[in-house]
């Protein structure tokens, strides 16, 4: 295994300046569960790992009391998200995803920021957040800026991050009332899976009916990056949400997906599962909205 120096930065600025002084031979690392695997397999060969774990912020989940936005620090572990009552109750779509990422051992260490920055097509963490219209805050030598998560990914392993920029925080706008979301990871085993397809659906209904006012359908593994299927979303808006309309939306989403064959699954099957999962997750959304109402 490649030897490296492990640099612990105490602040974001220190991390960025360490990165700049080492250039291409440096990589950021948080939980390290992905980075270590890549180093062991020789896929990356950094001379320096710059640890972000000790920068002293970006490791909490909070709601901004003024705006109602949800802020998830980039260093929040999947396990913290999984165990958070706030996430479980108010953002079950995130809970759906994070509780099935890797094992408890991995979730105890791996961070949501790391999951996003890795930018694998199957990143479970990204899909629900995209459905929630999340954006990410990015910190770099030029200061801070934000990018909508859907525009964050540029290709497998590729993101908009440049030159030592750090994803510091994920921000989820306050969701309107009567909004429900659900995520399904479709795999072969009940755990330890990369999804054959990952489907996140988020639906907002009119105040007193099942008519859809907003829909988000985000897919993982359906393209080189996470995508939204806009046609299917547009189709749902203004429609009564029921098995039939969701079935149609599923078909549209399947058509929009750019799935491919691999040893993990065949394209025709993935496409079919997009259709099935969109419908099923849509129904779960409906159920969850009604549960909220009941409460």
């Amino acid at each position: 295994m490649k030897k490296f120096k492990y640099l612990i930065s105490k602040t974001l600025d220190e991390a960025v300046s360490l990165y700049q002084s080492h250039g291409d031979s440096a990589m950021y690392v948080a939980g390290g569960t992905d980075v270590m695997v890549k180093i062991k397999s020789g896929k990356v060969t950094p001379d320096y790992l710059i640890s972000l774990t000790h920068v002293g912020r970006n490791s909490e989940i909070r709601i901004n009391p003024e705006t109602g936005t949800l802020h998830v620090g980039g260093l929040v572990t999947h396990r913290t998200l999984e165990m958070s009552p706030l996430i479980k109750l108010q953002y079950p779509i995130i809970h759906d995803a994070v509780q099935r990422i890797g094992s408890t051992q991995v979730r105890n260490v791996a961070t949501i920021g790391g999951n996003l920055v890795n930018a694998v097509p199957s990143a479970d963490g990204a899909i629900p957040l995209i459905a929630l219209d999340a954006y990410v805050n990015i910190y770099g030598s030029a200061g801070e800026h934000s990018v909508d998560l859907i525009h964050f990914f540029e290709g497998p392993g590729q993101t908009v991050l440049m030159n030592g920029e750090i994803l510091t925080e994920i921000v989820v706008p306050k969701q309107p009332p009567r909004t429900g979301g659900a995520y399904q990871k479709f795999g072969r085993r009940a755990a330890m899976e990369l999804p054959l397809i990952g489907v996140g659906v988020l639906i907002t209904l009119e105040e007193d009916s099942n008519r859809c006012v907003r829909a988000r359908i985000a897919l993982g593994v359906a393209a080189p990056t996470p995508i939204r299927t806009l046609g299917a979303e547009r189709y749902l808006v203004g429609k009564e949400i029921n098995e039939d309309t969701l079935n149609e939306a599923g078909k549209l989403a399947a058509e929009e997906s750019r799935v491919r064959d691999s040893i993990r699954g065949l394209a025709w099957y993935r496409r079919e599962m997009v259709a099935v999962s969109v419908q099923r997750m849509g129904l779960t959304c409906l159920q969850r909205i009604n549960q909220l109402k009941a409460k």
Binding site: G32, T33, M36, V37, R79, Q105
Partner: peptide, 13 residues
């Protein structure tokens, strides 16, 4: 107290 995979855990941490 947290279960972790020691094969991926940095000793320095």
């Amino acid at each position: 107290g947290l279960a972790i995979n020691s094969c991926l855990y940095f000793a320095v941490e």
